[in-house]
Design a protein around this nucleic acid. Structure first.
Length: 465
DNA sequence: GCATGATCATGC
DNA sequence: GCATGATCATGC
């Protein structure tokens, strides 16, 4: 009955790899289990793989799943989106104890112990028949500077410091980038450390955020990454954002043409030519390369053309077009839009007038990172929910107004306009007027997307001067 | 000069 | 051919 040698990392991995291509049903068939399977169990895949494949019984102890070699087992559900298959959700690492956390150091922390070596089992859930879900990939991941320890450690310290300060009740998943304090155990309150502000706090767990795990998943699927930590010689993640900013902002005021010379970037005529120069400066080896840290942290980079005299952006900032019918089904907390704005590196490019195109007359502005504040998030959530309501209420229905366009008319919906919101709005974003979407109520409308309002961006740029 | 719906242009 | 970032262009 011995299927693998639990003293050997290699043997465990070899045995794990036999899972690839198997469905949960296949595993059950091979295990001849007499256990009663509850198909409604949320962690069913985990249970089947853990118990029926590896023979690990539920251990309430804090020991790793394969304790002799210190390997933790994590079952990762995937999901399909437009661009392909991605990691579905955050990955819980261990629960938090607010009373003992302050006594821990990163090196000896419970979290690090669980993160040291993880055997990731990636599977694709089959929604119509959960037992048909298949395992796609196996990965033995080890914590190291190269794999992301600097950021995890930094995040862990941030959370610990907040707990020490007595602010456990103010913890939020948005506090950190990669390792987050995620709510666990449905609103359960537990005692907290240094109870001068509140005696209790919501029970939480340390979890890896989706972008972090997803970056690893993509790497496994042969997406090539470069590390900016090496390029910028970063040793302490605390300073990651700072290092990036320092690197760029020392060049503020220089023309894009000058920068392209300084950094020896060949530039063409493409619209993205300014972005190419900037990426090279930040440390991207080539324009199309992906930086590991940016993906792990879920950082988006956005260029923004700005009128120099009053810092007014030439345009609002767009995001990819959405599918209205998917949008109205989304939960705010899990929404695509929220994930796209969690952290953005804005690179303002100053110009005197709208019509300036010459690279000699475009100047690098004040670069900054933006993570929405609590206040901003509240407004954005409200506006987002309001748009969801508007779409559900059929406000995508359009009326044609005679206009001097190709078709001789323009189509106007009843959705709130940019001038009626504070931070975000919805607006057409198709190739042309024939690039359409349906709202599920029988209305056809040009594809829409979210945009960050011009005025809001102007305020943000000024605030970050 | 702004607001907003329309559309371009590159790159995959 | 499509998605996306970027920008146009009308009319007030």
């Amino acid at each position: 009955m011995i299927k693998y040698d639990d003293n050997s990392e290699k043997s465990i991995v070899t045995y794990a790899k036999k899972l690839i291509g198997k469905s949960l049903q296949d595993i059950l068939d091979l295990s001849s289990t007499t256990r009663i399977i509850n198909l409604k169990n949320k962690g069913l895949a985990g249970l089947i793989i853990e118990k029926e494949w590896f023979g690990i019984e539920q251990n309430s102890s804090q020991l790793p799943d394969f304790d002799k070699v210190g390997i933790e087992l994590k079952i990762i559900p995937l999901k399909k989106i437009k661009k392909g298959i991605v990691v579905k959700e955050r990955t819980k690492i261990c629960s938090m104890n607010y009373i003992t956390l302050p006594d821990e150091s990163w090196e000896e922390s419970h979290a690090k112990e669980k993160l040291n070596k993880i055997l990731f089992v990636y599977y694709f859930p089959n929604s119509s028949d959960i037992l048909k879900s298949k395992i796609l990939k196996i990965d033995l991941w080890k914590l190291s500077k190269e794999s992301g320890e600097l950021v995890l450690k930094d995040n862990w310290n941030f959370i610990r410091n907040k707990v020490i300060a007595g602010y456990a009740h103010k913890l939020s998943g948005r506090d950190t980038d990669s390792l987050e304090a995620s709510p666990s155990g449905t609103k359960k309150q537990v005692p907290q450390f240094n109870t001068i502000y509140s005696n209790t706090a919501q029970k939480r767990a340390f979890s890896l955020k989706q972008p972090f795990t997803n970056q690893r998943w993509k790497e496994l699927n042969h997406v090539k990454y470069e590390s900016i930590i090496e390029t910028l010689d970063i040793t302490n993640f605390d300073s990651f954002e700072q290092a990036v900013l320092e690197k760029i902002n020392s060049l503020q005021g220089k023309s894009i043409f000058k920068l392209s010379e300084l950094f020896d970037v060949k530039i063409g005529q493409s619209k993205s030519r300014v972005a190419s120069v900037m990426k090279k400066i930040i440390g991207f080896k080539s324009v199309r390369s992906k930086i590991k840290e940016f993906e792990q942290l879920g950082i988006e980079i956005k260029m923004i053309n700005v009128r120099k005299k009053d810092y007014r952006p030439m345009e609002a900032i767009s995001f990819p077009a959405m599918k209205l019918q998917e949008f109205i089904m989304e939960e705010w907390e899990e929404s695509i839009f929220l994930s796209m704005i969690s952290k953005i590196l804005f690179i303002p490019i100053y110009k005197e007038h709208t019509d300036v195109k010459d690279l000699d007359e475009l100047y690098l502005g004040n670069v900054f990172f933006w993570t929405p504040s609590n206040n901003e998030i509240n407004i954005i959530r409200e506006e987002w929910l309001n748009y969801q309501q508007e779409v559900q209420d059929g406000k995508c229905k359009v009326t044609r107004i005679p206009w001097n366009t190709k078709k001789g008319y323009k189509e106007v919906s009843c959705l709130s306009k940019e001038s009626q919101t504070q931070i975000i709005h919805i607006r057409p974003h198709g190739r042309d007027s024939d690039d359409r979407d349906e709202d599920g109520l029988g209305n056809s409308i040009v594809k829409q997307s979210f945009w960050l309002n011009t005025k809001f961006m102007q305020q943000l740029i000024i605030k970050n001067l």
